[in-house]
Computed example of a mutant assay.
Amino acid sequence: MRIAVDAMGGDNAPDVTVSGALAAAREWNDTTVILVGDAERLETLIGKHGARPSNLEIRHAAETIAADDEPVKAVRRKKDASMVVAGRMVAEREADAMISAGNTGALMTTGLLVVGRIRGIDRPALAAMIPTVDGVGVLGLDLGANMDASPEQLRQYAIMGSIYRNKVHGVSEPRVGLLNVGTEAMKGNELTKAAFPLLEQAPVHFVGNVESRDVLNAPCHVLVCDGFAGNVMLKSIEGTAAVVFSVLKREFMRSVATKLAALVLKPGLVRFRKNMDYSEHGAAPLLGVNGLLLKSHGSSDANAIKNAVRQARIAVQNDVVQSISTEISNGSEL
């Protein structure tokens, strides 16, 4: 198995991508991890970590797509950018999967222009894990790849998300919910009203509408929404979690008594924080493209990159892309 990592993508690249890739290569010696980026710089960073694993390779790429680059122009003009080179490796079957913490729009464009869509898919979707209090998580899609969606595209998201949760996370019959402002069948805007009956007829276990206030309690395994609503919900959850932990820390430091209370509660708080930590969930797959592309958080640390490799390995082993293609060809048209 060969997994390409865009070594130059992300807020903390290439230091954390090198550290994460090294950790992954050392843990899974059946997987070749390929760092794609400035070879000279990568060689220097690898040298600081001791002996280089035999299953770690470097593919030189002279250019980098920045976070503020316009996605389509960047992908078309920067043919030798690390993200584009990694995507081309997937398209040409030199790699089984690629991972990037870089520009989300550019990764979406790489998926469409370099790798290509699965036949029958209108638009790929970014499928990110939303942490839940029980540690199981909810796979939300789309969470930002496309700002708008049609009812039929939401149906496609439901099927792709259900396949992914089954193949990668081992959920035997994933429950699928539709993000909405109420649980009643005819609640919502024109999009959700039109999508509801399509999801009822889709080959998934549809459980109806889900309100955003209930998401952290894991009412479903897959949550379907358009990219605008999904991204707003995701950023709201991330922001709220950050504020809650900040306030708790401040309150626990107020006095000797609260510091003692913090010591007693620390194990539980650590477990809760780990459950809510995006880095533990690895990366978000871009479902619907004809290859396995995963998007890590822009501020990913080495642990997040390592977990992204772990997630990619499972997806490759379970042939997720082919499973989606097969679902289409078997008559469950997306």
Rank of each mutant, 00 (worst) to 15 (best):
M233Y: 14
L139T: 09
P197A: 04
R175T: 10
R77W: 09
P151L: 04
K78L: 07
D122P: 01
A145T: 03
V224L: 04
V256R: 09
A283Y: 08
N180F: 11
R250D: 09
V320F: 01
Y157V: 02
A74G: 12
T132E: 06
I324M: 08
R175C: 06
G120M: 00
D30T: 13
P197D: 05
I121W: 04
V171Q: 03
A202Q: 00
K167G: 08
P71R: 01
M108D: 06
V321R: 00
D69S: 10
S246A: 15
G282D: 00
A91Y: 06
A312V: 11
I3F: 03
I324E: 00
L45K: 14
V133N: 15
E63M: 02
F252H: 04
M233T: 14
G291I: 13
A61D: 04
E63R: 04
V243R: 10
R123S: 02
G144H: 07
I305T: 08
D15H: 13
S212L: 08
D6G: 13
H60G: 03
H169V: 06
V72S: 14
E94K: 15
K48H: 14
S325G: 09
E92D: 06
A158L: 07
N307C: 06
T258W: 04
Q201P: 04
P267A: 08
R2F: 09
L294C: 12
E92P: 10
S19D: 14
S323R: 14
A261E: 07
G298L: 01
G230D: 02
Y157D: 03
L234W: 09
I314L: 08
S299H: 14
S236F: 14
M108H: 09
A125E: 00
E238K: 08
V210Q: 00
N12T: 11
M253C: 09
D226Q: 03
P124M: 01
G288A: 07
A308R: 04
Y164T: 03
S212H: 07
I3G: 09
